[in-house]
Nucleic acid binder design. Structure first.
Lengths: 207, 207
DNA sequence: ATAATAAAATGAACATGCTCACAATAAATT
DNA sequence: AATTTATTGTGAGCATGTTCATTTTATTAT
């Protein structure tokens, strides 16, 4: 059965669409792969010819949203923002595109983006992390930091970003104002960090 | 069968011991509840009379380790440390007690301590978080911050702490020096945060 | 048209965390 | 000692993510 590429893509999209619907309606963990398959009109096993795991299905949606967010950011930035403002715009652009997926993002982002070591790393999650961090590095570079932030600084950035995502996932304040405040707060912290007030790092502590 | 309390506790400990052994040897996800039951000499179902879930079993060990860490911290602190040093000592005391469990902590801490919203919150994890944050608040209070840090600050603290845990879980440097550096770094950041350089927070951003 | 082939679909089967109706047993009661 | 009872132990069974040997089918070759 050498089906036309177009028919294959149609099936792929049908699976993604129905999965998104179910995830939004019932949450990620409460939507079973059998339900998704049924809704998409394929057999249970067929889905796994298209996506290696349920998690990958969800992360495919996330990755696409973040890609659009990056586009939007590039369109909207004016080159007149200071570093904090530009990072804010970058993060907010991503969140804006993730918004429709918000009802089911909790468990997905937790598993796919967490820095904790895993048995089977989710390809899409790792890619999303690297892409995001690369963008952050690029933005920082644009603001006159000649040397790239060290590994520790970027580790801290990722911790803060995950905290933001977790909070935002749950935020019920109108227009997610509280999340905006947390982003603002976190970014000021981060910018302070890389602005190099850390000259006295490395003190020895008994451990 | 009204078994003596002592016999019950013996069974409970046998389960915990064997579980710890298996978790350390094969990791959390690769140790099945059936294996644990077999090693402990009970039926598969019996374990769930003692612990509501495999995750709870692991978190019981974590909670106990952190309790001992808190004791150790209280014994070792001299009241002469500055805020950063005291927080460092607190965190390091916890990690020292968690050390034996390190081989399997990744997936456990990720699931139990993550701030992402969950369907079924793990009791032990939530308790551990609250206890840890209470200690941090107490330490901060001791260093002359009359008003407690706001919610956002503590959210950021937890993000940083989780980043530290994740990094430490993976750290292969001798004596975990890199983790120590990250703790030191993160804590300086946090102390800066609560030292109130945040007077200009709350700027409005288009979102 | 027919046969051959390679890609795709299928659903039975597996592993595993967990539940629950039932069995077994130690203490309490008679 | 026999009976009752409350508690603990048991393992078959369920749900679900995933695998894979088999079947189906669109295309290609004859």
């Amino acid at each position: 059965m050498r089906i036309s590429e177009q028919a294959k893509q149609a099936t792929r999209l049908r699976i993604l669409d129905k999965a998104a619907e179910l995830f939004c309606a019932k949450g990620f963990d409460d939507s079973t792969t059998r339900e998704i398959a049924l809704a998409a009109g394929v057999a249970a096993g067929t889905m796994f010819n298209y996506f290696p795991s349920k998690e990958t299905m969800a992360m495919t949606m996330v990755t696409e949203a973040l890609r659009q967010g990056l586009d939007e950011f590039r369109r909207r930035r004016t080159n007149e923002e200071d570093l904090t403002e530009e990072l804010f715009l970058f993060i907010a652009s991503g969140l804006r595109r993730l918004q429709p997926l918000r009802p089911f993002l909790g468990p997905v982002l937790e598993r796919s983006l967490s820095p904790f070591p895993r048995k089977a790393v989710c390809q899409e999650g790792e890619a999303a992390r690297l892409s995001h961090l690369a963008s952050v590095q690029e933005i920082i570079g644009r603001h006159g930091f000649t040397e790239a932030p060290d590994y520790a600084a970027m580790t801290i950035y990722w911790s803060l970003y995950l905290g933001i995502l977790a909070f935002w996932t749950n935020d019920t304040s109108p227009n997610q104002e509280e999340s905006q405040a947390l982003i603002d707060y976190s970014l000021r912290v981060f910018v302070q960090v890389i602005s190099g007030t850390g000259e006295e790092r490395g003190a020895a502590y008994a451990c």
